[in-house]
């Protein structure tokens, strides 16, 4: 029996990653472009990185975006996981149809209208708009993405394990924590990543729901489109990729060491 990757797997993975990374390679390349244009090469330079560090507005916006993305994706993952479990495991309960509608609807709703609706709601309850309101808005639509991913993973499992645990007298919450949660962990992690990405990329809803002093990175970048994107934005994207890649490398190293330590015990 042959384990692991077949030739077909290797080819599809390579092609897929090439497709994903061609634009990214260009983007990184043009962050070192001498000229201000992001689509025409004019020589090597690191001046955009120097300029970026001096660009307070852009750095602030990047910081705001990271905060919003981190907080909103975490809350959305907790709520979305609960919702996914409810949809896949709880069978019938009063209001179930409405509940599954509520999970689908925020994804269907065009962003402009979601933004407007939340804006009018915040105005109606006199909630001052700022970072907080952007987080609330992001949680609302990204929790649905998490719920759908978690639900699909749970549906692919039968409940024999969970039922066995319950039959052995394990209380439901315990069963959830020790059996269901580890089972759905890949989906929860995928959901968190999707929620983080959605928040980091959102322009329209953030524009509607933010207030003075709360400018996210996409808003900042979009506001510069009129006069053309400068390679500074490529530079900030490159740095972001670099940081994430470094963080991952460290995390996986620590993970490996811990695994080794556990094994040696």
């Amino acid at each position: 029996m042959q384990h692991g990757l077949s030739r077909f797997n290797v080819v599809s993975l390579t092609l897929g990653i090439a497709f994903l990374y061609t634009p990214i390679a260009l983007l990184v390349l043009f962050s070192f472009n001498e000229s201000r244009l992001v689509t025409v090469w004019a020589g090597f330079s690191t001046k955009w990185y120097a300029q970026l560090l001096r660009n307070e507005g852009l750095m602030n916006a990047a910081w705001v975006s990271l905060q919003v993305a981190f907080v909103s994706s975490t809350i959305a993952t907790v709520l979305g996981t609960l919702a996914g479990v409810v949809l896949a495991r709880f069978g019938r309960f009063p209001g179930r149809t409405l509940f599954s509608g509520l999970i689908a609807a925020p994804i269907v709703m065009p962003e402009v209208i979601t933004g407007l609706a939340l804006l009018l709601t915040f105005v109606a309850i006199s909630l001052d708009r700022g970072v907080l309101t952007v987080i609330v808005a992001h949680v609302t639509f990204s929790l649905c993405f998490v719920a759908i991913v978690v639900q699909s993973r749970l549906l692919a499992f039968d409940r024999s394990l969970e039922e066995a645990a319950m039959d052995l007298g394990c209380p439901p919450v315990r069963t959830f924590l020790t059996i269901t949660l580890p089972l759905i962990m890949p989906a929860v992690a995928a959901g968190w990543l999707l929620a983080f990405t959605l928040s980091l990329d959102d322009l329209v809803i953030a524009s509607f729901t933010s207030g003075p002093g709360a400018t996210t990175l996409p808003m900042k970048i979009y506001s510069q489109v009129r006069l053309g994107v400068t390679p500074e934005i490529n530079a900030i994207s490159t740095i972001m990729i670099g940081i994430v890649a470094a963080a991952l490398a460290i995390a996986s190293l620590i993970g490996k060491r811990r695994m080794n330590a556990e094994r040696s015990q």
Partner: peptide, 23 residues
């Protein structure tokens, strides 16, 4: 000075017409 920027009249107008823009 809290200095924010926009890129379209339409977005500014939406915020103004919704009220309490904070600006």
């Amino acid at each position: 000075v809290v200095y924010d920027v926009f890129d379209s009249n339409e977005l500014l107008e939406t915020k103004l017409l919704a009220g309490k823009s904070g600006y």
